[in-house]
Amino acid sequence: MSRLGVDIGNVSLKSPLILASGTCNFGHELSEYYDLSILGGLSSKGLTIRPRVGNEGVRVAETACGMLNSVGLQNPGVDYFIEHDLDYMRSLGTGVIVNVAGHSFDDYMAMIDKLDPHKDKIDALEINLSCPNVKAGCMSIGSDPEQIREIVSAMRKRTELPLWIKLTPNVTDIKATALAAQSAGADAVVLINTMLGMVIDIRTRRPVLHNNTGGYSGPGIKPVAVRMVAECSAVLDIPVIGCGGIMDYKDVIEFMIAGASAVEIGTASLVHPACPVDITRDLEDYCNVNNILIKELTGTLNIW
């Protein structure tokens, strides 16, 4: 029996590894590199009620330990997704997580109403209250505990699908936003989305990104993410899914010790598309050598 199985509330996943939204599209491209059924799940590209073309101009800026993106939620819209991609995701033999984004309360409700009829094909909805690259909604909602409570409790009334709330690190107190999600009926929180950053071209004295700012991801943000997972898991009763700069199996273990029940791999897939194959093998080896189930690691942090 595999030692990698984990539970996120009522959702059982065969592995703690989930592909993060926005770094795997809907699975088509990465399935050319490895069998995605080794994963615990795949979180779709962030979807909105209408198609979005995303931001114009340069959308990526490299940093020493990662990158900034300002894609701006380019996606084909939820109707197209349901018609063309959902069945494909279901066929991959892995957990199907649908990432839901919006610009307003009404947008998020409309999204839930579109997706709920397809609940037999969906394992969880990941509610993106944290995209830093769109002008309205998302991060501005997700940095205010009161708005989180309002939006999540309204979603809770509309669907029985598990609601995983993906939160932004661009707040003073991540515990406050995580607790707001929990009190509103969330089934899990996902920590963290990208950090707001800027890279400047010193030759032109202009930001590299034509959106001026973008979301910073990659190994540079991992310590921030681990800290937030540790802080939140200490005060939450619902599971935490860790995300931010995971590149190898040691990073996964670090997040789980901090309190994560599962993790998301994002930017690493952009550099090494098949990295989950190696991480899975290394996690199995680690569990075998230490004779543990991976879920036993969750929250084993001994703070000073």
């Binding site: 340069v58 959308r59 990526v60 380019q74 952009l270 550099v271």
Partner: peptide, 15 residues
């Protein structure tokens, strides 16, 4: 300007 090169990150778009 490209990141993944395999079509998953959507940063290198053209119109």
């Amino acid at each position: 300007r490209m990141a993944c090169g395999v079509g998953i990150c959507l940063v290198c778009v053209c119109k």
